[in-house]
Design a protein around this nucleic acid. Sequence first.
DNA 1: TGTCATTATGCTTTCGTATGCATGGAGGGT
DNA 2: ACCCTCCATGCATACGAAAGCATAATGACA
Lengths: 334, 334
Amino acid sequence: MAITSRDVARLAGVSQPTVSRALRDDPRVSEMTKAKVRAAVDRLGYVPSEAGRALSSGRTRRIGLLVTDLENQFYAHIIAPAHLQLEQLGYQLMLHTETADNETIVERLIANGVDGVILATTTVDSVVPLRLRDRGLPFVYFNRTASFADADATVVEPASGFAAAASRAVALGHSRIGAILGPSNTSTAQSREVALRAALAANGLDLSPHNIRRGPFDTRTGDDATTSLLGQLSPPTLIFCANDVVSYGALNAARRLGAAVPGDVSIIGFDDLPAASWPIIELSTIAYDLTTMAREAARLIARRIEQPDAPVLHVKYETSFVERRTLALASPSA
Amino acid sequence: MAITSRDVARLAGVSQPTVSRALRDDPRVSEMTKAKVRAAVDRLGYVPSEAGRALSSGRTRRIGLLVTDLENQFYAHIIAPAHLQLEQLGYQLMLHTETADNETIVERLIANGVDGVILATTTVDSVVPLRLRDRGLPFVYFNRTASFADADATVVEPASGFAAAASRAVALGHSRIGAILGPSNTSTAQSREVALRAALAANGLDLSPHNIRRGPFDTRTGDDATTSLLGQLSPPTLIFCANDVVSYGALNAARRLGAAVPGDVSIIGFDDLPAASWPIIELSTIAYDLTTMAREAARLIARRIEQPDAPVLHVKYETSFVERRTLALASPSA
DNA sequence: TGTCATTATGCTTTCGTATGCATGGAGGGT
DNA sequence: ACCCTCCATGCATACGAAAGCATAATGACA
């Protein structure tokens, strides 16, 4: 019932292989024949079968993007640019969530015949990269890396952003600093914690254990942790959050508790998502070029597929500090 | 290099077709043979090739989800539940954006060999449904429908929500009502406008043309339209927004202009996205069960694929009004 | 012990495209 | 006029799984 390259061949008066070659612009096919084939394609409304092509060529031109939480705003801002960039490179994006256990995920990626994978939510101890390597399936790390790091990656360098933020914090009189950190088994949480501690130390500050909370990179973590932090006798006057989405939760908790931001407590995020600059939010945050980074991850995986032996690339994105409403003078009551 | 069902067959001492049947739990294969096959599968780490399966069976178990703007929060809240539900039904979700022209989209859907499509951003005059019908590719409408409506659909019934909202608005003394409506070529904008006008009329109110703005369902529309509405000599005291995402823009504009919400102007949204109930937003809005609706759309397309002649279903979702901070007494200065 | 039904399995072909190899035909050089 | 070269195209087959059909093995029954 579906139109095949044979139907096109019959109408164009050529053989099926010639149709195949003409459509992929093979130089061995004459211009005249190509024109005939294109005309036949148009008349029949022929569209090459992805399945046939995949089976024959061993390539699907599909890339898997592995994430955990699709509702999380952060991922929306990755998916959109990655999808667009891959489309421009002639690839299709397939979403995969880590609902099942890791072994199943890898099997599913293989089963769905992706040519490569973008890992956006790896934990440092994940076996996924190893399994992918065993299977010979190319992959790149996006944002997070695993301890097995012998692969292309796009990573954020948090040091400069935290350095700027910490020095502003000191200038504004903050001394009791709180932090809501991400899960310790993520490279992002680890590198941000290191960078934050270093930046604070460079400014004569430190992070007391009772002012530290940890949790997944979601709004609820920010909400719960802030509620807990502000419930202390002598609460922090400034809270660094694992990322912007966590900050939203922090802002929510503060509002619920009647704590003014930035009057009673200042909040600093990480990522500079579009909503961070909304007038109703105005979040101070550590910024980098997330969109470019997502596009770069797409480019890297395409490159790795097309040039399997290209040198491994770690593309780094520098951070800066964006000061907005949620950071102000430390509350005098402190 | 990849492991095929033939390799499994060889190891298990059976034929390739038997492997195929054993793995799909064909009752004609004995339990003992199935066990042998499964053992061989495990030892080799065999994963069936999607391409081979697709070519042979004519099915891909992939569903396309067609949206416009992946960054839009609204779609994140569709994608997540739809993805999950499809996974549970044994299907894979493929995102498609309407970047290219409509004809290209349909071709791409066919080329990528989806078994069915969920249309989430149809316009009433779109040719996509017609083309899909011509190609014999099953589809369902999600939220929006086109004028060619002979297909399964999940739709929102805005009447009850607007009725409740309008009566509360009157009780709170609002008389100058503004509206930021969606694009006139979407069924959702149309049905919401009808419902809003009817609800206002039932309460002795109406919508003056100078208090109406229109635009895409995004934050920027809300921002621009609100800036324009509030810039008038006698601005509305209450603005109904096309949806929550538009409302966020309205809140931003009000904040930027120094207009207090709800002191100077009240805002009502539509969708009740998770963020609407955040303490820092507290948006009054018209609510329905978006998550269930997305899952239902997934179920409908699976059903249509598996039972092509099943009766066409239009599943309707009732709305209610959720009153939060952004609605209050009409400003006395009015 | 022969026949038949039944069950389990194998054989063969198919799906649509891509590719290595064979071949036909045109053109140029001697 | 013949041979060689080169270009354009066709032929045959491969990719991996699924399904129709054929058949071997098993058991029941007369």
